[in-house]
Amino acid sequence: MPAIEIDALHKRFGSVEALRGVDLTVEDGEVYGFLGPNGAGKSTTIDVILDYVRPTSGEATVFGLDATEHTKEIRQRIGVLPDAYHLDGHLTGRQHLQFAIDAKDASDDPGSLLDRVGLSEQAGRRGAGGYSKGMAQRLLLAIALVGDPDLIILDEPSTGLDPNGARRMREIVREENDRGATVFFSSHILGQVEAVCDRVGILDEGQIVAEDTMAGLEASLGSEAQLSVTLDRDPGEAILGDVERVPDVRNVTVQDRTVTVACPDARKIDVLDAVRADDVTVTDFETSEPSLEEMFASLTEGDR
């Protein structure tokens, strides 16, 4: 049974359509990265999973339970680091953590949880009103770990964390995953997701535009490598036809003395041969493997 299943989810706030048919599945035991630019609808999707907002249509289930019907059972089994939260300032970090432990009827030791996220005992005794954003994120991460949840949902967990904190967060994600927990976390920065995720889904303008394993995404990027060939003179438009005859090439363009083409690695030599056949001399060529970052950008900024 999938940990999270979202089916044709729509959410409208007044005249704004925040989610326009989101479908995604988070399998039991995986680390799933939920990517998208700010405003894509990541938090709204998570808010539906947590029953903070109600869907306009479509549905979300967690462990096969409807997210709006079975909130209590679901919340008993999940740990959450929500976005746009506020910590009551009159409670200390430790009191916040103890409340989460009581609420879940768990038996965790607050001290060792604080230690695990890198908050000192002293920090735990301070009022949470004085916490920096990074300390608050660490405390919320500790709270999300209470009761060894089956599913951990982290909404933009790296916000405000220094590099050490971000590394600690990734280590904890791995440790929890090794324990058997499913981890679902959102980010607008691909680099944070790349290192720990089994699979990613990319959300843009309220729709999933790509969903694949990291390896699958990288493989599909391989076919998108760009080859630029610089010639000794302007070859003219005639060269276009010759290059386009090479199988598997796309997006052939000529500008001044440079021919640019998107092709799989295996076709690069064929492209060079096709260019040379046109009675020009190749002075230089370079290939670029677009990073995941670029693909992410092209997927989510293409139509803006």
Binding site: K72, R75, Q76, P82, D83, H86, H96, A103, K104, L140
Partner: peptide, 18 residues
């Protein structure tokens, strides 16, 4: 108050119904 500030978002992540 907690609804506007966001402290309800923490509270409701625990096993409480509305």
């Amino acid at each position: 108050g907690p609804r506007e500030s966001g402290s309800l978002r923490v509270l409701l992540s625990y096993p409480f119904t509305r």
